[in-house]
């Protein structure tokens, strides 16, 4: 079970990213918040700055769309309920004959506009982020009750190495061929920020 929880946590972070399936046309790629200068290193970030950067990503629709607080994945840049009434199902992979893998495989399908990545699924209910503040998300993420018993190190691994999470930066195109919006922080900067935050003791600011 623990492993399964881990897989789901990882999946959940990147899942949010995943399930954006048929997003609305016209979405624009966001500009990164940080200069992409190579001088911006983890060592230069205070834990507070790192937290802000990390949360720019974790509150983005590429993550939150698959961390819903109910039983329906979201999709698109407007985070609408997944077309066809797709549901969470008993194991977060959909229902009997309508599973995530009925349509989503391990890679994006840019011909059909169907996103895909390994372990495509919905984040478990315990990992619901939709509607939470940044502080609430961080608390939930560090709470072993919610994160599948992960240590901080394991959480960092999930946040920075899980393929489903990192899919957010390679989200492919939607059914109209329009590129999906990426998180507002470049991947390398995000990874540095997560590590800097953890290295600084993973502080969560006061609300």
């Amino acid at each position: 079970m623990k492993n399964a929880h881990r897989a789901y946590l990882a999946a959940s972070l990147l899942l949010g990213i995943l399930v954006l399936g048929f997003s609305t046309p016209g979405a624009q790629l966001s500009e990164p918040k940080l200069p992409e200068s190579s001088e911006s290193t983890a060592a230069e970030l205070t834990p507070e700055q790192a937290f802000d950067l990390m949360m720019e990503v974790l509150t983005h629709k590429r993550c939150v769309n698959c961390h819903p607080s109910d039983d329906y994945p979201r999709q698109g840049e407007d985070s609408h309920i997944h077309n066809f009434g797709v549901q969470r199902g008993p194991d977060n992979h959909g229902v009997a004959a309508l599973q995530c893998q009925t349509c989503h495989q391990t890679e994006n399908n840019n011909h059909a506009g169907v996103p895909g990545a390994p372990e495509w699924s919905l984040a478990p209910r315990r990992m619901a982020w939709q509607g939470l503040t940044r502080v609430e998300i961080a608390r939930s993420m560090l709470n072993p009750e919610n994160n599948g018993g992960r240590t901080l190190e394991e959480t960092v691994h999930h946040l920075t190495e899980h393929e489903l999470v990192l899919w957010a930066w390679e989200p492919g195109v939607d059914a109209n061929g329009t590129p999906r919006e990426k998180p507002p922080v470049p991947k390398a900067e995000y990874i540095k920020a997560v590590k800097a935050w953890a290295a600084g003791g993973a502080p969560i600011p006061e609300e």
């Binding site: 048929f22 077309n83 066809f84 004959a97 309508l98 599973q99 893998q101 009925t102 349509c103 495989q105 399908n109 011909h111 059909a112 506009g113 169907v114 059914a175």
Partner: peptide
Amino acid sequence: KAACGACTLHVDGKAVRSCS
């Protein structure tokens, strides 16, 4: 586009939309 289901077949017994 994996939207209509006309192309549904089974892969190892599970429904799959084969166009995608």
